[in-house]
């Protein structure tokens, strides 16, 4: 972190002194602010992370409910395939996915960045396991009152699952915000880049980028840190004070 406050000469010196010889400098930050398109990247990051989180939580919770509480043909096999797919090495999906995006004519669109990221089998697995633990008596009561499947899901299961839904949303949001490889590969238009990708493209005229890379990654994580520092109480509370324990 300290590196981001040094001049490029110090940052690439062989011994790594914590205190730079040329003193601390904001040069690296100035370069990034001067050359980058920070407001656009920040907005993209927010839009993409919010969209991915909303879609992921919605479709994962529905699928988890289907796997946990309903019977349909192929349910067991589909769940087993979902769990197994958690293990697919992401590195191997990148090239096929990119070719797919080319074929679908989606490269350099928000859709290309967002859609592949909403598939989160691990989150389906987590939610399914938590839904399994909800006592069925509550759902039965609602059914006796005439509620249909969707109604039960929406008014009984989801409110009881707020802690785990909050946890899943947090995981997805953080992962999407910090994701580098896929947004990097699927966008080349600077107007569509996220913060981590955009910051990585900023080059100094000298070509030496050690200090700048530090500054860039620090800048990329600051918004997230601030948001979570401000709201950590509420976030922990939303995870911690709902659920069956509080009934």
């Amino acid at each position: 972190m300290d590196t981001s406050f040094k001049t490029e000469v110090d940052a690439s010196a062989s011994g790594a002194d914590w205190i730079p010889k040329a003193g601390f400098t904001l040069h690296a930050y100035r370069t990034i602010f001067g050359q980058g398109n920070l407001p656009v990247w920040a907005v993209n990051s927010v839009v993409i992370a919010v969209c991915v989180t909303a879609i992921t939580v919605a479709i994962s919770a529905m699928a988890a409910y289907a796997f946990s509480r309903t019977l349909f043909r192929g349910r067991r096999v589909l769940f087993a395939v979902t769990v197994a797919s958690i293990m697919v090495p992401p590195q191997i999906l990148i090239v096929p996915l990119f070719r797919q995006m080319l074929a679908m004519n989606l490269v350099d669109t928000y859709a290309a960045v967002i859609l592949p990221q909403v598939v989160a089998p691990a989150m389906v697995f987590i939610l399914k396991k938590f839904f399994d633990g909800i006592p069925r008596e509550l759902e039965e009561a609602a059914r006796i009152d005439g509620a249909g499947s969707f109604r039960v899901f929406w008014s009984v299961v989801l409110p009881l699952s707020r802690p785990i839904l909050a946890a899943v949303a947090i995981f997805v949001f953080i992962n999407t915000w910090n994701n580098f490889l896929w947004p990097f590969i699927s966008t080349s238009d600077p107007q569509l880049m996220t913060l981590p990708v955009g910051l990585s493209t900023v080059k100094d005229s000298t070509g030496l980028r050690n200090a700048q890379e530090s500054a860039a990654s620090i800048l990329g994580s600051i918004p997230l840190l601030i948001v979570f520092m401000l709201f950590q109480r509420q976030i922990v509370k939303s995870v911690a004070t709902t659920g069956l324990g509080g009934q």
Binding site: A58, I59, S60, M62, A63, Y65, A66, F67, T70, L71, F72, R75, L78, V119, V124, G148, S149, F150, F153
Partner: peptide, 10 residues
């Protein structure tokens, strides 16, 4: 119902 819930994800 099960299929309906699972379809978007699948």
């Amino acid at each position: 119902a099960g299929w309906l819930f699972a379809t978007p994800f699948l």
